[in-house]
Simulated scan of single mutants.
Amino acid sequence: MDLEARKYQFIQQLGKVEEERVLEKLESVLKASQSDWFDALSEAEQAEIQIGLDQVNNGEFTSHEEVMKRFSKWH
């Protein structure tokens, strides 16, 4: 069964749902699958992440290998 047929079948089954809690669960699943975790962050958190991404793009970072070398005596 292709994707379009599955969607159509799902819509038909959805029309038969009579329990509010079932609809709420389905809505939460759809909402979770359509939202981006980044959008749920505050503006300050998003800004901090952007700063980090900019630093990586500018080569301003230390590789995992270098960190492991520096701290190998404690590992």
Rank of each mutant, 00 (worst) to 15 (best):
E65A: 10
W74H: 09
S63I: 01
D2I: 05
F61I: 02
F71I: 03
Q12F: 07
H75Y: 05
K69N: 07
G52S: 09
E43I: 03
G59P: 05
K69V: 05
S35V: 11
H64S: 02
L41F: 04
A44C: 03
R6L: 12
V56L: 13
Y8V: 13
L3S: 08
N58W: 02
A44L: 10
E4K: 14
F61Y: 14
F61K: 02
D36T: 05
A47L: 06
D2G: 07
E48R: 06
A40M: 11
Q9R: 11
K69T: 05
E18I: 08
G59V: 07
I51K: 05
A44E: 15
D36H: 10
Q55S: 09
L53S: 00
S28K: 15
H64D: 05
N58C: 01
Q34S: 13
E24L: 14
D39G: 09
L23P: 05
E45M: 02
D54W: 02
E48C: 01
A47I: 00
Q55I: 00
K69A: 04
G59T: 08
W74A: 09
L3R: 08
K69E: 12
L53H: 00
L23W: 09
M68A: 08
K25A: 15
Q12M: 13
Q12H: 11
L30V: 13
H64Y: 04
L23T: 11
Q34D: 06
D54R: 08
E24Q: 13
G15S: 14
E24I: 11
Q12D: 13
L41C: 09
F10R: 05
E18Y: 07
N57E: 09
R70E: 06
K73G: 01
Q9L: 14
K73R: 11
S33G: 13
K69Y: 01
V22T: 15
E43A: 12
S35N: 12
Q34H: 06
L30W: 10
A47W: 02
S42R: 03
N57P: 00
G59M: 06
I49Y: 00
Q50W: 03
A47K: 08
E48M: 08
R21C: 03
L26E: 06
Q50R: 12
I49M: 01
E45S: 07
F10S: 11
R6S: 10
F10E: 06
N58T: 03
E19K: 15
E4R: 12
E20Y: 07
M1A: 06
F10D: 04
D2K: 09
V67D: 00
R21A: 13
S72F: 04
R70P: 00
V67S: 02
F71S: 01
Q9H: 10
A40I: 07
L30Q: 04
S33R: 13
V67G: 00
K69M: 04
H75A: 10
R70S: 03
Q13K: 15
E60T: 04
I11M: 14
S63D: 06
E60L: 08
S72T: 02
K16I: 08
